[in-house]
């Protein structure tokens, strides 16, 4: 069953479309990978799912439903109840995401109290269980620790504990390991995937790390400049990319796996608010760009489960189809 469904979701800041008409769905127990360079709109689109786009940002969509409930039209109070319980999110920088003024225990218990309630004793017991679950040693003593007393990896574990506190059906992880030591990254991902399988959560995993997505994601979405340029089963997208952008991402794999935001294979950067080109947004950087590309925006084509937004999708040999 589809947990989350979005159809032509856009997020605009003034005239600027940070997220431009994206559509996808996440099923129960499914891992959806989202990849793309910095500035592609990965974070903004996931924040919009949580209802966290601040004024003057505007979110619009033909459909944005979670378990068949319309997130955009439901009363604010009802949406706030879903936020942080049924849909939870973990952020890129665990060290700055936890509130420096409150203890770890306080911040876990606060999440439990907000959505579930319980006596002081029960809440504390549950908090200790959660810390144990995410692999934090000596959880009783950690409860009274302040965030600055934890390492990055530990903080991320705490954030994961808070995220799963209310048994979410959907977990959004926005580059959960980018800010961490390379040695810790694999541990955190293992933990996330373990929990996802145990609890059969839907997981949206946003990352620079294509190797990781290839390994753990069922389906993958490639974003560029606020748009989805390619989507499909992870194995297919990575073995036979159809979009020049995906091909370039894969070509620079060792670098991008190490968290580099720039692509060696494609000079230039993702267009921002003031330099959005006409026609295909990739055309200034695309090695296959033609005059047609520079004037006419391509439409998404292909079957629903394997889409590509290019005039001349690449064939199995990695060449543009004539």
């Amino acid at each position: 069953m589809s947990l989350l469904k979005l159809e032509n979701l856009s997020v605009t800041f003034g005239n600027f479309r940070a997220v431009d008409q994206i559509s996808y769905s996440v099923n129960e127990g499914e891992v959806l990978g989202i990849v793309g360079e910095s500035g592609s709109g990965k974070s903004v689109s996931s924040l919009s799912l949580m209802g966290l786009i601040d004024y003057p940002g505007k979110v619009s969509a033909d459909e944005l439903t979670f378990m068949d409930q319309d997130l955009l039209s439901m009363p604010e109070a009802q949406r706030r109840k879903i936020t942080g319980s049924d849909i939870a999110m973990i952020f890129q920088d665990p060290m700055t995401s936890l509130n420096p003024c409150f203890t770890v225990g306080y911040q876990i218990i606060e999440a439990l109290k907000t959505h579930q309630g319980g006596t002081k004793k029960e809440l504390k017991k549950r908090a200790i269980e959660l810390l144990t679950l995410v692999g934090i040693p000596a959880p009783e003593t950690r409860l009274s620790a302040y965030p600055h007393q934890l390492s990055g990896g530990m903080s991320q574990r705490v954030m994961i504990a808070i995220a799963i506190a209310c048994n979410p059906k959907l977990l959004i992880a926005d580059e959960p390991t980018t800010a961490l030591d390379v040695t810790i990254q694999a541990q955190i991902i293992d933990l996330l995937i373990d929990l996802q399988e145990q609890k059969q959560m839907g997981l949206v995993l946003i990352t620079h790390d294509l190797a990781l997505v290839a390994e753990v994601a069922h389906r993958v979405i490639v974003m560029y400049a606020g748009q989805i340029v390619e989507s499909g089963p992870a194995s297919e997208v990575f073995s036979a990319p159809q979009h020049p952008y995906t091909q370039a991402l894969l070509a620079s794999l060792p670098e991008s796996a190490a968290g580099k935001a720039r692509l060696e294979a494609l000079p230039g950067v993702v267009p921002g608010q003031y330099d959005r080109p006409k026609g295909c947004l990739l055309s200034p950087r695309c090695p296959y760009a033609t005059d047609h590309c520079r004037n006419v925006e391509p439409a998404s084509q292909g079957p629903l489960e394997r889409q590509v937004k290019c005039h001349t999708p690449l064939n199995a040999q990695g060449r543009p189809a004539a």
């Binding site: 924040l47 700055t96 995401s97 409150f102």
Partner: peptide
């Protein structure tokens, strides 16, 4: 503007709590 306030919103915490507890405590330092 800080990350931990955005994070607090994502936890579903009520607005008064966010403003008068999470934010104010950090403001007062």
């Amino acid at each position: 503007q800080s990350d931990f306030i955005r994070y607090a919103w994502s936890k579903g915490i009520s607005a008064p709590r966010i403003y008068f507890l999470h934010a104010l405590k950090n403001t007062m330092l």
